[in-house]
């Protein structure tokens, strides 16, 4: 009976030890500042991180930034806004369309006049032929 109890105890000890080893191995995988890190992730970025982001961005501006902006505002010609570009495009298209319509009308008129003159000449020649006959 004692031997059975000893074996059972030994097995349980081994099993407990195995669990402890597993836990130790698992916990060794966690980084030293696991708790802080988890809290930080759970809370999301704090004000300090945004502050760092702003500080980094501010260092990207070269000294004399304001003077450069003022100079550029004076010197660089203003770029057209999207709506201005659209209006400009529409106006250009309208002018082109008008030019096409005008050219077409002009050409048609010239062609008609030429054809009419041809027909008139033909009619005149036919009349002359009738009279001679």
């Amino acid at each position: 009976m004692n031997t059975f109890a000893n074996i059972t105890n030994l097995t349980m000890k081994t099993e407990n030890q195995a669990w402890r080893d597993l836990q130790m191995h698992a916990s060794a995988q966690l980084r030293a500042d696991f708790a802080n890190r988890t809290l930080r992730i759970a809370r999301g970025p704090a004000a300090a991180e945004w502050e760092q982001l702003h500080t980094h961005a501010a260092t990207q501006l070269r000294p004399g930034f304001a003077a450069r902006v003022l100079r550029a505002a004076r010197e660089i010609p203003r770029r057209l806004t999207l709506s201005e570009q659209l209006v400009f495009g529409a106006a250009t298209a309208a002018v082109c369309l008008l030019a096409v319509v005008y050219l077409h009308a002009h050409n048609a008129r010239v062609e008609n006049e030429r054809n009419l003159a041809g027909w008139q000449q033909l009619a005149q020649e036919a009349d002359e032929l009738d009279q001679t006959l």
Binding site: H54, L61, A66
Partner: peptide, 26 residues
């Protein structure tokens, strides 16, 4: 300028855009 630079960086995530875009804004 610093606040606009921060805003631009947060929006574009590019350090090399900060000066140009901030300048455009101003």
């Amino acid at each position: 300028q610093h606040r606009v630079a921060g805003f631009v960086f947060a929006m574009t995530n590019r350090s090399d855009y900060v000066e140009d875009l901030s300048q455009q804004v101003f």
